[in-house]
Amino acid sequence: MLILSRKVDESIIIGDNIEVKIISIDKGMVKIGIEAPSSVSILRSELLKEVENSNKAASVHVDDAVLESFYKKFSK
């Protein structure tokens, strides 16, 4: 992990086409701006983890009777 100190209006460049700029710092909160091509996915890590956890929870338990019913209905 690279750790940098930046001031407001300073930025870092990632690769050839991604810029991360410090927009403001206020009351312990840092606002950043990210310029990147639309083909680059930018996600907040806490939201991604929440979706992953929800997907795992949804796939953990499937009632065998439901699966058997589904199989009988669609295997004809």
Rank of each mutant, 00 (worst) to 15 (best):
L2H: 12
L2S: 07
I3P: 00
L4A: 09
L4D: 03
R6Q: 08
R6T: 01
V8G: 06
D9E: 13
D9M: 08
D9A: 12
D9W: 08
E10Y: 02
E10W: 07
E10P: 07
S11F: 12
S11H: 11
S11K: 05
I12E: 10
I13D: 03
D16L: 01
N17S: 14
I18P: 03
E19V: 15
K21R: 11
K21H: 06
K21S: 05
I25H: 10
G28L: 00
G28I: 00
I32N: 01
I32T: 06
G33C: 03
I34N: 03
I34L: 00
E35K: 14
E35L: 14
A36V: 08
A36F: 10
P37Y: 12
S38P: 14
S38Q: 15
I42C: 01
I42P: 00
L43Y: 10
L43E: 09
S45G: 06
E46A: 05
E46P: 01
L47V: 12
L48Y: 15
K49G: 03
V51Y: 11
E52M: 09
E52C: 05
E52W: 09
N55H: 13
N55C: 14
K56M: 13
A57Y: 13
A58V: 03
S59A: 14
V62F: 12
D63H: 07
D63C: 01
D63L: 01
A65R: 02
A65V: 12
V66I: 11
V66W: 09
V66Q: 00
V66N: 02
L67W: 05
L67R: 00
E68R: 03
S69T: 15
S69F: 12
Y71V: 00
K72Y: 00
K73H: 03
K73P: 05
F74Q: 04
F74C: 01
K76V: 06
K76H: 08
